[in-house]
């Protein structure tokens, strides 16, 4: 069972629209995992039924039992995050400021502080309109995506894929270069980098590729809005060549790309020319990964 991960570094490159199109092309042979939990948008194109949901708990947050508190203020003294203000003469925890380090509870003389794992979101297992299953999640406000959540979403997807003898898991990866994207990449058979020929697009592509390289994972690149800036597009292609990254496809700038999304459709369903570009990438990907779909 293979794992194909789509990442972009920069937002707004069309990563999710492209992933959804690949999901459409792969149909029943894939299980989909949406690990772009900060902006989990793929469900808007996949019509999930939110069939099963499970609360997701992560990290820790302090809570002060006012009956046991003797107002000595030690907790406030040790808190480096200014997360224990005094409100109406009571020491209380500011949940948005608390980092869950647990230091306050360790120094409280009356054990008035307990740490609990807060619910930070929900994980869903949904039937989607491409005839398969998608694992996705929603985070609560102020909650951080984490390696743990990404691993959870991917694990559910992989277990299901194995159980149902699917050919691959398709992962919409997390943004940035931190722990969640590391967790998105861990275990990947192939990475698809989606970029655009803009100064910032190239900048972020290079940054995120440093990580991919560290893991030694084979990568391919889709250049979206490829005709927007020829000079930068050439720089992107030069970079791909230097790093031995396969150029999967160059998709021209086209308003139909966004129109498809507005209509709740993937690009392959909506526009033949753009669709062809994505099908051509998909063929290359399946060839490289060595799967038949």
């Amino acid at each position: 069972m293979k794992e194909i991960v789509v990442i972009s570094g920069k937002g707004g490159t069309g990563k999710t629209s492209i992933t959804a199109s690949l999901a459409y092309l792969g149909g029943e042979d894939l299980i989909i995992a949406d690990c772009d939990v900060d902006a989990a948008d793929m469900h808007l194109l996949m019509a999930p039924d939110f069939g099963q949901s499970e609360d997701f708990y992560s990290g820790e947050i302090a809570y002060i039992d006012q009956d046991a508190c003797i107002k000595c203020g030690k907790c406030q003294d040790v808190c480096r995050f200014d997360a224990i203000p005094v409100i109406d003469t009571q020491y209380v925890v500011d949940p948005l400021g608390c980092e869950g380090c647990g230091y306050c509870a360790r120094v409280c003389p009356t054990d008035a502080i307990t740490n609990s794992q807060p619910k930070v979101g929900e994980v869903y297992v949904s039937n989607v309109r491409t005839g398969t299953t998608m694992i996705h999640a929603r985070l609560s406000i102020g909650a951080d995506n984490s390696g743990k959540l990404v691993a959870k979403v991917k694990n559910e997807a992989k277990t299901l894929a194995e159980k149902e003898n699917k050919i691959a898991v398709l992962v919409d990866g997390s943004p940035g270069v931190g722990c969640p994207v590391v967790s998105s990449l861990s275990g990947a058979s192939f990475v698809i980098l989606v970029t655009e020929p803009t100064v910032s697009g190239l900048h972020d592509l290079k940054r995120v590729y440093e990580l991919v390289k560290k893991f030694g994972i084979k990568a391919g690149c889709i250049i979206n809005k490829a005709d927007l800036n020829e000079a930068v597009a050439d720089d992107v292609k030069k970079f791909l060549k230097e790093e031995d990254i396969v150029l999967l496809s160059e998709i021209p700038y086209n308003v139909k790309f966004t129109e498809a999304m507005t209509n709740g459709k993937t690009i392959v369903e909506y526009d033949e020319d753009l669709g062809k570009k994505i099908s051509e990438s998909w063929t290359k990907i399946t060839d490289i990964v060595g799967i038949e779909i």
Binding site: S146, K148, N155, S183
Partner: peptide, 8 residues
């Protein structure tokens, strides 16, 4: 290790 948010 599933329980670890970071630093697995």
């Amino acid at each position: 290790i599933e329980g670890e948010a970071h630093g697995a």
